[in-house]
Write a protein that binds this DNA or RNA. Structure first.
Length: 490
RNA sequence: GGUGGUGUACCCAAGUGGUUUAAGGGGACGGAUUGCAAAUCCGUUAUUCGCCGGUUCGAAUCCGGCCACCACCUCCA
């Protein structure tokens, strides 16, 4: 089955055909680094990371670019407000962004171009648009003339005349000929960061950097352009207008937009309300905090367990459910890890010989081929985990070693890990996950478990239970396995 | 006013015309296992997919109307 992707431009799923056979070039709109990243900022990077991993798995050579917007009105405002410089803000928040990506295991981005490092390209693009008659200079600003672009609005389905004109009228000024025209280059006031240009000192408009950098690194026409749904209009609409007017060529072939993260909050009236999570609303959940609290894999799983185009409603309850769901895998890996001191059959089966297990890979691919249905793909992983546990259970592998069955289990687990790896899951090794806490905790727990074992041996169950319940109260769960007792933090 | 999105069990969430008389996870309940638990396995938990009509041999899936929620049209991933 061939890969199909939902294209916002056509509003349907289309068979994926890269411009250059075997190669995929994609661009994702990155952050304006004026504040710390929140969890909503991670939806795009996480899904695109999974997309890239899947495309690479499918044999494509993939180039993926994420821009960093390091000059923008909000940065100037924030610098002013906090009595610091734009550059200092940029460095601080870019570092935070990179840390979060790194924690989440997103190491597939090939380049992070910055707007301020591409002034020459941006100015050249503005000049081209003026030369071709799509843009005009006025009072040191350069405006894009939307009425010159005959198919303006094709991405968002908007017609300029039908938009609310009252607000628009107020936006006229600074030499704009049409209220809907948007800025390519803005003249700067004294004291603001500025770059020299043919139109005087200024800085780029919001949209132009993406066009300039995407085309520089990916070519005039490339395969996939992504971002949040809130960027469809005006940002992506304007990117298309600028780029295609300048080159006469199609810009991105496929536009992918992820759903926005929402959060449930209590309104002043006391009613619960659901609204998007955004810096401008002030209801954001810090990405770093969430990662620190739940761990990167669970955050990833949380974001991938919903199809990327659906909105994700963020609640503590769902995170708690996610944590439990994910624990099924870590417990399975730990369980298998404990088996590996048993002898393994030297001629372990290949996955193709695993019978019931071998179909999962195909189903996994079918899901992913259908517009990157990561939620469906994760369901396959759960099926596999259940089957592996069932095999361990029915074969009584933990009670009586069986090299052949063990080899089968290990092969199936490897397959599970490989498939999960395509989604960027299961990065923490089983042994690392087991080795919780320091030596002191380990030693103390061994001592406590030893004492409880004595009590059980003497059929002093009241005391044994008291120990276990006491531990439970402080968040430690005991698990009596044949021959040993395991512990873990809740 | 214009544009787009969403509405599937108690909760989260796949599925967009027949292979699904609706995946997967959480929760709940019953069973196996356990001294009791935990973990794991087995089973049960939507005759039904916001509502009303229509098309079709057949629809959660297509069409029309309506309702609710979210978002965009000003910065936002």
């Amino acid at each position: 089955m061939a890969l199909r992707i939902y294209n916002t431009l056509s509003r349907k799923k289309e068979p994926f055909q890269p411009v250059t056979p075997g190669k995929v070039r994609m661009y994702l709109c990155g952050p304006t680094v004026y504040k710390s990243p929140h969890i909503g900022h991670m939806v795009g990077p996480v899904i695109f990371d999974a997309i890239k991993r899947y495309l690479v798995y499918r044999g494509f050579e993939v180039t993926w670019i994420v821009n960093i917007t390091d000059i923008e009105d909000k940065l100037i405002e924030a610098a002013h407000r906090f009595n610091t410089t734009v550059q200092a803000l940029v460095e601080k928040h870019t570092a935070e962004y990179m840390k979060v990506l790194s924690d989440l295991g997103i190491d597939t981005i090939d380049r992070f171009p910055r707007a301020t490092e591409h002034m020459a390209e941006i100015i050249a693009l503005c000049q081209t648009l003026i030369d071709k008659g799509y843009a005009y200079e006025a009072q040191g600003n350069v405006w894009f003339s939307v009425e010159k672009d005959e198919d303006y609005g094709k991405l968002s389905g908007r017609k300029i005349e039908q938009q609310e004109s009252g607000l628009r009228a107020n936006l006229a000024g600074e030499g704009k000929r049409n209220p809907a025209d948007f800025g390519l280059w803005k003249s700067t006031k004294p004291g603001e960061p500025s770059w020299n240009s043919p139109w005087g000192p200024g800085r780029p408009g919001w949209h132009i950097e993406c066009s300039a950098m995407a085309m520089k690194y990916l070519g005039q026409t490339f395969d996939i352009h992504g971002g949040g749904m809130d960027l469809v209009f005006p940002h992506h609409e304007n990117e298309i207008a600028q780029s295609e007017s300048a080159t006469g060529q199609p810009f991105a072939r496929c536009w992918m937009h992820n759903g926005l993260t929402r959060i449930r909050t209590k309104a002043a009236s006391g009613q619960w309300q659901v609204e998007k999570m955004a810096g401008s609303v002030g209801n954001v959940v810090s990405a770093q905090q969430l990662i620190d609290q739940y761990g990167p894999d669970i955050v990833r799983y949380f974001l991938l367990a919903t199809h990327y185009r659906s909105p994700i409603e963020f609640t503590d309850q769902v995170l708690a459910d996610t944590k439990k769901a994910y624990a099924v895998f870590t417990r399975l890996f730990e369980r298998v890890q404990r088996l590996t001191n048993q002898p393994v059959s030297s001629q372990g089966p290949s996955v193709d010989e695993l019978g019931a297990f071998k179909e999962h890979r195909q189903l996994f691919e079918t899901r992913m081929d259908d517009d990157f249905n990561t939620a469906g793909a994760i369901a396959e992983l759960h099926q596999m985990a259940g089957q592996i546990n069932a095999l361990i259970e029915s074969s009584k592998l933990e009670q009586s070693p069986d090299p052949k069955v063990l080899a089968q289990v290990l092969a199936a687990v490897q397959e599970l890990r490989n498939l999960g790896g395509i989604l960027g899951l299961f990065r923490v090794s089983a042994s690392a996950a087991t080795a919780s806490d320091g030596e002191l905790s380990q030693a103390l727990m061994q001592l406590i478990i030893q004492l409880r074992a004595e009590a059980r041996k003497n059929k002093n169950f009241a005391q044994a239970d008291a120990i276990r319940q006491g531990l439970e109260k402080i968040g430690v769960v005991l698990e009596d396995r044949p021959g040993q007792t395991l512990w873990r933090k809740q």
